[in-house]
Design a protein around this nucleic acid. Sequence first.
RNA 1: GGAGAGGUCGCAUAGUGGUCUAGUGCGGAUGUCUUGAAAACAUCUGUGGGUGCAAGCCUACCGCGAGUUCGAAUCUCGCCCUCUCCGCCA
Length: 418
Amino acid sequence: MFDIKLIRDNPEQIQKSAKDKRIDIDVKKILEIDKKESELQKKVQSLQEKRNAFNKEIKGKPSAEQIEKGKKIREELVALGTEFNKTKEELNVLLLQIPNPAKPDVKAGKDESENDVIRKWGEIPRFSFKPKDHLGLGEALGIINIEKAAKVSGTRFAYRMGDMVLLELALVQYSMDFLVKEGFIPVIPPVLVKREVMQGLGYMENGGEEDMFQLKEDGLFLVGTAEHSLVPMHKDEILDIKDLPRRYVGYSTSFRREAGSYGKDTRGIFRNHQFNKVEMVSFVAAGEDDHENDYLLGLEEKMFQELEIPYQVIKMCTGDLGFPAARKYDIEAWMPGQEKYREVTSVSTVTDFQSRRLNMKYQDGSEKKYLQVLNGTAFAMSRTPIAILENYQQEDGSIVIPEILRKYMNKEKISNMK
RNA sequence: GGAGAGGUCGCAUAGUGGUCUAGUGCGGAUGUCUUGAAAACAUCUGUGGGUGCAAGCCUACCGCGAGUUCGAAUCUCGCCCUCUCCGCCA
């Protein structure tokens, strides 16, 4: 739950930070309801005190007057309690709608057009021929088939076949090896989660619910990323500070409805309803999340450097941050088929925002504090393989396998499968 | 899916309408004793909220939610989860 004390102490600042994220909240109204709620709570508690004292007086059988008096207290308590609960609920609903404020170093901006490129790495490859895009390459090689998927499942699905599968598995193996060496705990998490968990993560607010597949019969949601089931692993738990930082690397399928992206990236498998992804999640102590944010970004960059794929790092402005994030960086890989940098990974700190909503703490001496949570992509399948196909393509349409992946694939080249 | 058993303060257990401000053991913390350690002994040891400079005091929480009652861990109803057996099944 968003910290009400923070709103009481810095109302203007919270109002502004929401506005920077282009989210409409009414801090003045929240404070009014908060005040009403506090007053009701005091009344309810003093009445409960009175009731408890009265009950203590009764030993054995109560007299007729005592029963009368008890009934009266109960009626009063029910009336007051109902009003209190209603007010509390009203306040909770409003608090859940407050986004996590951006960190001070994040630029206020309206949308992606105001994001900053903070660095570039690698040489953009020059081809002696006109490079194809991933779909042209993949179809010719017989390793990507969209038509069959359209027939079976509809748009935005694909069959990945043959060496495309081996390439994906090689990326999984490589990134798992790399991150396990860094101390990450590998996890294959559930891909279906409860509504309350999705709400706790903060991805249902502000229209987010529309982008998730739901199983209404069962009240479950398909995860949009392994983060959705990795983070809530510690729901209602108190970790010990000596177990921090706690880092997980999850491998799961991800599902996205891609609502609101109609007509965008419709060619190929860049934006699909279903893809596999290796995802990092860190839990760290208060004050450590900035450092962890840099560390996770550094790992992402290292992996793309080892794949020798040119990229740029983007720092998102407030308008492009999303509801739970306080800071976010994307890595965009160079895609020769589009002659553009395109998003392949994303890493953010959500500070204690999800911990508050999911009740995740750690014990620091005699104090209990909320965990700081971070998440970042290692490899999203489809997008990283796309970058490999396009950057490593040869004139004859074959694909040279990046050096680092060869031992996992047992081959150096993807040639025509047909 | 069917039948049965069960969910109590980190763990294990006690508690079947008021004496529960939830007992006991283990674990943990601190202290005494000791050259040190162990043992022994003593005290403390759940979470949220309110109030207070603080010590403290008050309040809620016994899987979750509703109900019965002057009064609920305890009775009733619904839900969730775990275990055992049966059925089905990769």
